[in-house]
Design a protein around this nucleic acid. Structure first.
Length: 573
DNA sequence: GCCGTTTTCGGCCCGACTGTTTTCAGTCG
């Protein structure tokens, strides 16, 4: 069984949790948590690197010991430290940590006092009334555990960004109705434009917190109030979305916004930087001793630690701080930079709009060209086009272009990449099109080596311009295909191919990490709506968010070119 | 366990809220 980076990260997470329950040095615990994150975000598979005879590369927070463990896990699939810890503590104890109110200390106490090692044993102990008798516990804690276990809401679910947006924006509007609200921002991973969000963080500036808090907990979608203080409250909405509200005075809004936007790792790094300058940063401002020296705006907070403002999408502690300290950050792409869209479907395959309707909607969305890229014949469920139908559509597009104003339709196809890397239509017909995007819609589970070979072979094809939704994932449904991404990206570079960043919120494929890899390797990215309806051009906003998380500038994106430049770029040698 | 314009040792971000206490530990973000 191949060992993936995700497997290494999972082992580090479990080591961290078991060490925590053992009461180990919290900074050692944090080192393992950090390492898990770094490993899972690293662009290449360690197993592949090591198999190629290379060393584990130097990564921040990964020293001699941890890089040795990465090597150990990648080559053996096991980790001696984890095996030892599992012998010392029942591994199932870590499953208790997800229960609200139970952290490492209390889990350990329950283990020692009551012999509780599993969720089932915890439930039995709670039902028998044993937990309330343990020192440090009480009736309320016991009840809270029981409530959670009885209402067991299944595995932790994260919402797609546009789904969360509906609930979050409505609640934000409701809060803005309070006259005491002076400023309001939805912060957290929502503001960082992560592809999914686990909860919503709302920040309000107000001189009168109490009525704001009251309005918040009185919102009619609130199902449960998890906690409520004078400046902070947590609720669960009927949709199961958790929302946290924080109210601060206006003079602290910038500091609080920075704090509440995160990511946590970014915040920690910024606060460390402040420490080194004799400053302290918290949600109330930047302080030298007791004097507040900054905090009204985010810019002032960054300036206090000698940094320019860093866009929320970059705040993941992926090198943005060191970068900003020595050079200008990328000027991140914006929606207005997009000149066209290179992927959509009409009624001819599985879309539900006509060519004319799509053209009008694209023009209304500010675009000047739109590639029509139906599925190809192999995808029968989507009414994929064979050669005859494709040529018919080309004629229809020519005719339509003659009448259209302000937008040009490009003749294209989303051609299926077959299992062996061949394309689903002949060279002859593909050569007549303006643009060919290729996509995998089957055999997602080939071995990484075969999958890579398949995609590289498809890219070798002289007429293929863009590899569409390269990871083939659907968030929450289908995992990405497995392959060595750096080799794929470098092959695209050699062949003059481009990689799509599919902007459908359920896909957002490329990932942020791979988009950044493409930029660093000099491969242009196409941000495409994959529209199937006239409303789907709104997807482009989500694609832009993902692209910004991948550090992309307008110049890194294929479809920021005006049409004549685009045509030149597509004519690859 | 990591890391170094104070440091190879001794630090490591910071505060709100809850429940169980009677001054605070634990959890959470």
């Amino acid at each position: 069984m191949p060992v993936h980076n995700a497997d290494i990260a999972a082992i580090f997470e479990q080591i961290a949790e078991l060490l925590e329950i053992q009461g180990a040095n919290p900074f050692r615990v944090r080192a393992y948590h950090n390492a898990a994150r770094t490993v899972s975000e690293f662009g290449r598979e360690f197993t592949a690197l090591i198999a190629a005879g290379q060393d584990v590369p130097h990564l921040p927070g990964i020293g001699k010991d941890l890089s040795g463990k990465i090597h150990e896990i990648a080559t053996t699939g096991r980790c001696a430290l984890l095996d030892r810890l599992r012998g010392e503590l029942p591994p199932a104890l870590t499953e208790l940590l997800v229960i609200p109110g139970l952290g490492p200390k209390r889990v350990r106490t329950l283990h020692e006092a009551l012999g509780v090692d599993t969720v089932a044993q915890l439930r039995a102990a709670a039902e028998a009334g044993h937990i309330r008798r343990v020192p440090g516990f009480g009736a309320k804690t016991e009840q809270r555990i029981l409530d959670h276990l009885r209402s067991r809401p299944g595995p932790e679910t994260r919402m797609l960004l546009p789904v969360a947006a509906q609930y979050a924006e409505a609640l934000a509007d409701w809060l803005r109705g309070a006259p005491q609200v002076q400023q309001l921002e939805i912060a957290g991973s929502y503001r960082r434009r992560r592809e999914t969000v686990g909860d919503i963080d709302i920040l309000v500036a107000s001189d009168a917190p109490a009525p704001v808090m009251q309005r918040f907990t009185g919102y009619d979608e609130v199902r449960q109030i998890l906690g409520q203080g004078s400046t902070r409250a947590s609720v669960v909405l009927a949709s199961s979305l958790q929302v946290d509200l924080r109210v601060v005075e206006p003079a602290a809004f910038g500091a609080a916004l920075h704090y509440f936007t995160g990511s946590r790792a970014h915040n920690i790094a910024i606060r460390k930087r402040a420490q080194a300058r004799g400053l302290k940063i918290n949600e109330y401002g930047v302080f030298r001793g007791k004097a507040r020296v900054a905090g009204e705006t985010e810019e002032s907070v960054f300036a206090a630690v000698d940094l320019p403002w860093i866009a929320p999408e970059l705040r993941e502690d992926r090198g943005e701080i060191a970068w900003a300290a020595r050079a200008p950050l990328p000027r991140l792409i914006e929606r207005a930079d997009l000149k066209g869209d290179l992927h959509c479907h009409s009624r001819a395959s599985d879309g539900n709009a006509t060519l004319e309707e799509l053209a009008a909607a694209a023009r209304a969305a500010g675009l000047t060209y739109l590639a029509i890229t139906e599925h190809s014949q192999r995808l029968t469920v989507a009414h994929g086009l064979d050669t005859a139908r494709l040529l018919q559509q080309c004629e229809a597009i020519d005719a339509l272009n003659a009448r259209l104003d302000g937008i040009v339709l490009l003749k294209g196809i989303e051609v299926d990449i077959l299992e062996d890397g061949q394309l689903d239509l002949s060279d002859e017909v593909l050569g007549q099109l303006d643009i060919v995007i290729g996509a995998v819609h089957s055999h997602f589970d080939l071995s990484p080596a075969r999958q890579l070979k398949r995609l590289m072979r498809a890219m070798d094809h002289p007429h293929l311009h863009v590899l569409a939704h390269p990871g083939c994932r659907e968030l929450g449904k289908r995992p990405p295909i497995e392959l060595d991404w750096l080799r794929l990206v470098r092959h695209a570079r050699r062949r003059g191919c481009f990689l799509e960043l599919n902007a459908q919120p359920k896909r957002l494929d490329l990932t942020d990490v791979h988009a950044r890899m493409a930029r660093e390797e000099g491969v242009l990215v196409a941000i495409s709506s994959d529209a199937h309806t006239v409303d789907d051009f709104n997807n482009l906003d989500y694609g832009i968010g993902q692209a910004r998380r991948g550090w992309l500038e307008a110049a890194d994106v294929l479809n920021t070119r005006p049409l004549d430049t685009l045509r030149e770029v597509l004519r690859r040698g």
